[in-house]
Amino acid sequence: GATAVSEWTEYKTADGKTYYYNNRTLESTFEKPQELK
């Protein structure tokens, strides 16, 4: 079976905060997504 690849990509803001962006739902969040835990 195919492994589900996380759609979340980790980015940093200009002031160094980490956030996560989902390229399928176009959602962004500062909290670590469930799929990455």
Rank of each mutant, 00 (worst) to 15 (best):
G1F: 14
T18G: 02
K37T: 14
D15A: 07
T9W: 07
K37V: 15
T29H: 04
K32Y: 05
Y21S: 03
N23T: 13
E35F: 06
N22H: 02
N23H: 14
L36G: 06
E35I: 07
T18S: 09
A14Y: 03
T3C: 13
Q34P: 14
T29Y: 05
K17P: 01
D15R: 03
Y11A: 07
V5H: 13
S6E: 10
T3R: 08
S28N: 05
Y19F: 11
T3I: 12
L36F: 13
Q34G: 11
Q34F: 12
K17F: 08
V5W: 14
K32F: 05
T18K: 06
T25D: 02
T25Q: 01
K17I: 15
A14P: 12
T29W: 04
T3G: 14
T9Q: 12
S6L: 09
Y21E: 03
T9G: 06
W8D: 00
K12H: 09
N22A: 01
A4K: 08
L36K: 04
G16H: 02
G1K: 09
T13H: 04
W8E: 00
E7A: 07
L26K: 15
T25A: 01
Y20Q: 00
V5D: 12
Y20N: 00
D15H: 04
T29F: 05
G16K: 01
Y19W: 11
Q34D: 15
N22Q: 01
P33R: 02
E7V: 08
A4P: 12
T13E: 03
T18M: 05
T13A: 06
E35T: 06
E27Y: 04
T25Y: 02
S6N: 11
N22E: 01
A4T: 13
N23R: 11
A4W: 10
A4V: 14
Y20P: 01
N22V: 00
D15W: 06
W8N: 00
S6W: 10
N23Q: 10
K37L: 15
F30D: 07
Y21H: 06
E35K: 04
P33Q: 02
E7W: 08
T9V: 15
S6T: 10
T3M: 14
F30H: 06
V5L: 15
A4G: 12
E31N: 09
E35H: 08
Y21R: 07
Q34L: 14
E10T: 10
R24Y: 11
Q34I: 13
A4F: 08
A14G: 06
Y20A: 00
L36H: 08
V5Q: 12
Y21F: 15
S28H: 10
Y20E: 00
D15M: 04
Y21W: 10
E10Y: 04
L36R: 04
P33Y: 02
E35Q: 09
K32E: 07
E35V: 08
S6V: 09
Q34E: 15
V5F: 13
A14Q: 09
A14K: 11
N22M: 00
T13N: 09
S28M: 15
Y21Q: 06
G16V: 00
K32H: 04
K37N: 13
